[in-house]
């Protein structure tokens, strides 16, 4: 089945750990890291990365433009 898969890259130093992307993600991909960044915030990271569907919800609500989203659509394979 050609299922769309996604991946995100979080700019850890820009992130302020506001948690809005965690709430916005429909597949619970993102969580806040227990470690802190240079500013002292807990940045977001893709905890359950395999579930990402590249819906861009996280990047749309991110106020600090930390999240870059990639989408991959596998070619249909003949059985």
């Amino acid at each position: 089945m050609a299922k769309i898969k996604g991946a995100i890259v979080v700019d850890t130093e820009r992130c302020k750990g506001c948690n809005l992307c965690v709430v916005a993600c429909p597949t619970d991909v993102i969580a806040l890291n227990k470690l802190v960044n240079g500013k002292g915030f807990n940045p977001a990271f893709p905890e359950n990365h395999g579930a990402c569907i590249a819906c861009m919800s996280c990047s749309l609500v991110c106020p600090d433009m930390c999240i870059t989203v990639y989408r991959y659509k596998p070619q249909k394979e003949t059985v």
Partner: peptide, 10 residues
Amino acid sequence: IIKKGTLVFE
């Protein structure tokens, strides 16, 4: 995915 996929948001 990051290598092969298309960039949809930056």
